[in-house]
Design a protein around this nucleic acid. Sequence first.
DNA 1: TAAAGACCAC
DNA 2: GTGGTCTTTA
Lengths: 263, 263
Amino acid sequence: MLELRLVQGSLLKKVLEAVKDLVNDANFDCSSTGFSLQAMDSSHVALVSLLLRSEGFEHYRCDRNLSMGMNLGNMSKMLKCAGNDDIITIKADDGSDTVTFMFESPTQDKIADFEMKLMDIDSEHLGIPDAEYHSIVRMPSGEFSRICKDLSSIGDTVLISVTKEGVKFSTAGDIGTANIVLRQNTTVDKPEDAIVIEMNEPVSLSFALRYMNSFTKATPLSETVTISLSSELPVVVEYKVAEMGYIRYYLAPKIEEEEDTKP
Amino acid sequence: MLELRLVQGSLLKKVLEAVKDLVNDANFDCSSTGFSLQAMDSSHVALVSLLLRSEGFEHYRCDRNLSMGMNLGNMSKMLKCAGNDDIITIKADDGSDTVTFMFESPTQDKIADFEMKLMDIDSEHLGIPDAEYHSIVRMPSGEFSRICKDLSSIGDTVLISVTKEGVKFSTAGDIGTANIVLRQNTTVDKPEDAIVIEMNEPVSLSFALRYMNSFTKATPLSETVTISLSSELPVVVEYKVAEMGYIRYYLAPKIEEEEDTKP
DNA sequence: TAAAGACCAC
DNA sequence: GTGGTCTTTA
């Protein structure tokens, strides 16, 4: 028996928006710790890892560990039927092949329940080792989103370079090149607006903008985003989910190509 | 000679938005009583009935009954040219094959007139008998609209059931099922927010969501909608038009289908 | 392809 | 608060 009651239902709606473009089907894993998901994107290049800790739910009952395979597109369709102020409850009976989403309006005038079929999904749950990162950049999520969008109109790869000067996002394409430099800035009105660069060692890595732009679908979840970089390691793009967890995207850097012009 | 002056011109604009998707061409009937329209939708399944009483107009002159055939798409195009605060006057000379819409800006700085060709349209004016309804639900129009929209992302038919518990909207589709229950609630801040269920007899009827969603185009006309249900009778979905009339949609229930699993 | 919703700027 | 743009869905 599983029953998870989330007062701020809009969080779950936003989480699905942030995942469904990247992953079609995935297992949600429920344990006493929390509600989590880990999946490769459909082209098997990026990895998404979501955690919503049990403490973040108003009520969290999970009698035994459960892995529920869901089609995220269908799940998202159903969650779109919840109001942004609704309380969302996820229910499943042990051994059932369905899951029920219940939406309660704040006034309790309206109570909706949506039942969805579960599916069997093979999933290799990868252990993600903790790592030391050479550089960690924290910045407003909207700004990061804007940068990725802007750069993708010029090129399809972003080179992220962190030096003591700041962080530079660069791209190049047929029509020209672009460089966007952000300097550390912690003297801001709101702490969310800060740009914090923790550089242990300079790094310079290239990533496919296509994936970065998918990651920024999580922007509505958090005012800030954290980008952790190490050479030879996948970048981690992390958005906190209000007091209850996170959504993390992993993407391997592009292998450094030879200079454009070869002899 | 016909001359109808409507101070709140936006009402007519909204009325056209509420009808033009359902009906392509229709006769507007003008008499001393008011300005009305009755038409089947283009697939001959639903019926729209509009009444704007003469008292609602600032000036209402209709020397003799007139039936003016209009293409509602074209009429809507012209009305879109009126500002929302404009005063709209509808004019037609007896025997003329055109109608003129005049738009006056509130400041009288701008006066526009648009002339449109009339057309001959066969119309069977159906008498709609008054009926006793088993159940009548009044609810915020926005909520009804939201429910119809949400359910159509799951299925294509809505089953509306009224019991003493409240009113339930249900659907089923490939990805799952959905039930939305509304309970009577009259203890609200604004009377328009009330959900009032007048149940003389329980009813349970199915309707095509496609049409329901067309009906909800009238939502901007009124804060509330009234749904009148009787078994064997078309449902009536009614929106009041501010102090001057109504727009009513009629839709026959779907015949109850046999159980899903046939021998 | 067209319409509706969401977001942003004014 | 309103209009305009852009994105998303049918």
